[in-house]
Amino acid sequence: MTLVYIPAPLRDMCGGVATLQIEAPTLDALLRALDVRCPGFYARVVEGGRVRPELAVAIDGEAATYPLSEPMSHVRDVSIIPAIGGGAGIEDTEIARRYPRTGQRRDRWFAEPPMGPHVLGLVEHLSREMELKAGTRVLDLGCGRATSSMFLAEEFGVETWATDLYAPT
């Protein structure tokens, strides 16, 4: 059984408690078990298959770069802490700086494009080269989830026609 010390900013997710007892074979399993008790916890700590760079995990008192596969069976104590060198606010900085309209998008549909380069950033980049205004008609050919069309319609009030062979499931 491992005693997990919940960092103060995440205690709201865990009903206010500072510590939880969890039994799990690996760090990943431990964080997923925590996510069951504290919904959303896993995504706050893990990103892209690793502990977020602004965080560190201390296992039995030692903060280091641990893989998610780190065995936990003999671990007594785990704390999630800010990285020693941390403090860098990194989330969304590129998108937000270069593409302010895109950066303001908070809903998941827009904020987490499903693949490739940030589609809205590209659309916003292109939109600066065009005179888009209310009533302009836009054809979005090969629209996928039509994210670009919705973005253009909401941001510029244009009328969009979108089509694709692909149908979202």
Partner: peptide
Amino acid sequence: AARDVVQELGESSVNAME
């Protein structure tokens, strides 16, 4: 164009864009 990624430098870390 730099990427929005963080590099660990030991006692500091740095965002490549910044």
